[in-house]
Every structure is written in structure tokens, then in C-alpha cells.
């Protein structure tokens, strides 16, 4: 065991333990650590917004633009940054309740633009491409008579799975979509299809569930690696 002598490792380890104390119950140590985190990360974000965004994308172009304007007396493209800069300042009026409504102009500007990006992008990636993928995979049909023929000429487990998986997938997509169709009662044929849809949904949720367990455990492993290795020095 080689206990760390680095003061910062100790700070990190103690803060980690403060958070874990929540497992016993909510307590002042946890609350202290949580609030410290809120403050430090808010400060961190502000600094990053400033040095990574404000500075290179707004302030430097303005500095250069005004520099040229004052020394050479000509207008350059850099000065166009004044428009979004002004809109940005208008956004900050939201902090002053009386004139907060002015911020809506700037809000409408970026909010509207982002919605416009969503419409075409989602239609392409989430609707059309997904429908296409339900028919074709890598240029070959998903519902493939060729693969089925393979199974009948060489009846074995492998070709069977290959032949059946594609059609099963198509059925799964159609049934799942039918389950989320709200304009008919789930009775009769539609009801049956929707029931199959639930089966697919549950398998899908189960897969996510299994994976989520994995994710949470991975995070714990990462933290215990830190405590055991970097702090306590039990392993190298």
C-alpha cells in the first residue's frame, strides 16, 4: 500500500467520499460537496464560454474590424459580428424583468433557426433513411428470397437465422409503429399487430436495461479504480 502524498489526490478522494456518503443517507457532507460542484462547474462553464467562444468568435473579429476601421478607415467583414453581438446583448435583458421581453427578439432568431435545421435534418436521417433501411441493407433487399433459397437448399441453423432475421426485423418495425398509432382501438387485427409490437418494444427496452446496468457499474469501476489505485495505492 502506497498512500498518495499528493494533496490534490487527497482533496479529490475526500470529495468522492463526501458524495458516496449519500448512500447512507442525505447529509451535510453530501450537500457541501454538491453545492461546491454546482459553483465550480458554473464558473468553469463561464470561463470556457468566454475563452472558447466569445473571445475568438466575437471579440477578436470586432477588435480587428475596429482596428482597421480606425487606422485605415475602411469597413471589413469582421464588423458583421456586431449584429449577432447586439442580438446577444438583447438576450441578456431577460435578467431585468421590466424589459425582459426585448430578449424575445434574439431568442426568436436562434430558436427559429434551430427549428429550421431540425425539420429537414430529421426528415432525412430519422424518417427517410430509416424507411430505406427497412427495405435495403448495403444494396441488398432485407426480405431476401435468395437467403431463403439458401436455407431450403442447405437446411441448417445458420442459414435459417440469416433468412428469417430480415423479415422479422421488418415485422418488428411495422408492429412497433402500429402500437404507437392512436387513431384506431387496439382490437381485432390491429390489436394483434400492436401486441406483437409490445413484444418487440419489451425486448428493445430489455436490451437498453441490460446496457444501462453495464454503464452504471462502469462508472463505479472508474471511481473505485481512482480510490484504490491513485489514492490508496493498493494496485499499480
Amino acid at each position: 500500500m502506497h498512500l498518495s502524498t499528493d494533496i490534490f489526490i487527497w482533496i479529490a478522494a475526500l470529495l468522492t467520499l463526501c458524495i458516496y456518503s449519500f448512500l447512507y443517507k442525505d447529509n451535510p457532507f453530501y450537500k457541501f460537496a454538491e453545492h461546491l460542484l454546482v459553483g465550480v462547474s458554473a464558473g468553469y462553464l463561464f470561463v470556457i464560454y468566454f475563452w472558447n467562444n466569445m473571445w475568438p468568435n466575437l471579440l477578436i473579429p470586432l477588435r480587428d474590424g475596429f482596428g482597421i476601421l480606425l487606422t485605415e478607415g475602411r469597413f471589413t467583414g469582421n464588423l458583421a459580428a456586431l449584429v449577432p453581438g447586439t442580438l446577444g446583448l438583447l438576450l441578456l435583458t431577460r435578467l431585468i424583468p421590466k424589459i425582459g421581453w426585448i430578449s424575445r427578439w434574439a431568442f426568436g432568431f436562434y430558436f427559429g433557426a434551430f427549428q429550421g435545421i431540425v425539420i429537414t435534418g430529421y426528415m432525412q436521417a430519422f424518417i427517410l433513411a430509416q424507411v430505406y433501411g427497412t427495405f435495403m441493407k448495403g444494396g441488398n433487399p432485407v426480405f431476401s428470397l435468395v437467403l431463403m433459397g439458401d436455407f431450403f437448399t442447405r437446411p441448417a441453423w445458420g442459414p435459417f437465422v440469416l433468412a428469417v432475421s430480415g423479415p422479422l426485423m421488418i415485422a418488428g418495425v411495422v408492429c412497433t409503429l402500429t402500437y404507437f398509432f392512436f387513431s384506431t382501438e387496439h382490437r381485432g387485427f390491429a390489436g394483434g399487430v400492436a401486441k406483437v409490437g409490445i413484444v418487440f418494444l419489451m425486448i428493445g427496452f430489455g436490451a437498453s436495461f441490460g446496457y444501462t446496468v453495464m454503464a452504471r457499474v462502469s462508472l463505479l469501476i472508474g471511481r473505485l479504480q481512482f480510490l484504490i489505485r491513485d489514492w490508496l495505492g493498493l494496485i499499480s
Binding site: 430529421y122 426528415m123 422479422l168 426485423m169 421488418i170 418488428g172 412497433t176 428493445g204
Partner: peptide, 18 residues
């Protein structure tokens, strides 16, 4: 099966977002 279900959900979410 997982992929089929997720695609169904995805199309629904896509339409909702649009």
C-alpha cells in the same frame, strides 16, 4: 428485435420533433 423496436420509436420521435 432491439433494432426494430428502436427504429419504430425513432420514427415516432422524428415525426414528433418535426
Amino acid at each position: 428485435p432491439n433494432m426494430a423496436a428502436k427504429r419504430g420509436i425513432m420514427i415516432g420521435i422524428g415525426l414528433g420533433a418535426i
